[in-house]
């Protein structure tokens, strides 16, 4: 059994018995996808909401919500997952620093959460659980046997969603 690590602005897939994890999500959102029959899972560590924000010609798909999720689904299908069985869970999208002079603009965390939900809707993937927002960092690990997502934060109880 291996623990597959996904970095910042990165994505990967895993199959039972391996687990898949990403560490230290702040304003970034970790989206996990899971097909319970094949026990194939995917995880994307999304940093920004939309490829429209990209200033480069070549885009790292894993970095943006709107490009990361279709790419992740593709990778899972290639591994043998079936699209209509895929369900999503997500965590992250916190606001790590509080600013007194905030202009009322939505935080990058909130925008990431919204963009991930929008991308899932477009793909027709149901979001079955989430642990998002707040002002603290999270580490997540998806267990491929059950599709259970473990969310860990500093000085908080471990959550299973």
């Amino acid at each position: 059994m291996a623990v597959i690590k996904v970095g910042i602005a990165d994505l990967n897939v895993a199959a039972y018995p391996d687990t898949i994890t990403t560490l230290g999500l702040g304003s970034c959102v970790g989206v996990t996808l899971y097909d319970s029959t094949t026990k194939i899972a995917g995880l994307a560590h999304v940093m920004l909401p939309s490829t429209e924000l990209s200033k480069t010609a070549v885009v790292n798909k894993a970095k943006f919500a709107d490009s990361a999720l279709p790419e992740l689904v593709d990778r899972m299908l290639k591994k043998g997952a079936v699209a209509r069985r895929i369900k999503a869970k997500m965590a992250g999208g916190a606001q790590m620093f509080q600013f007194k002079d905030s202009t009322g603009q939505k935080s990058i965390g909130d925008r990431n959460i919204e963009a991930c939900k929008m991308a899932l809707r477009k793909l027709g993937i149901p979001l079955v659980a989430e642990d998002v927002g707040g002002n603290y960092g999270r580490t997540i690990e998806l267990f491929t046997e059950t599709g259970m997502l473990e969310v860990r934060a500093i000085s908080k109880d471990i959550k299973h969603i």
Binding site: G26, K55, F99
Partner: peptide
Amino acid sequence: TVPSLAIDMAGALLSYGLTEIGKS
């Protein structure tokens, strides 16, 4: 700008400061 203090995981805090750079 007015500085803000936070105590948390390094990845969660630093990645916030990288989002602007992440566009390029």
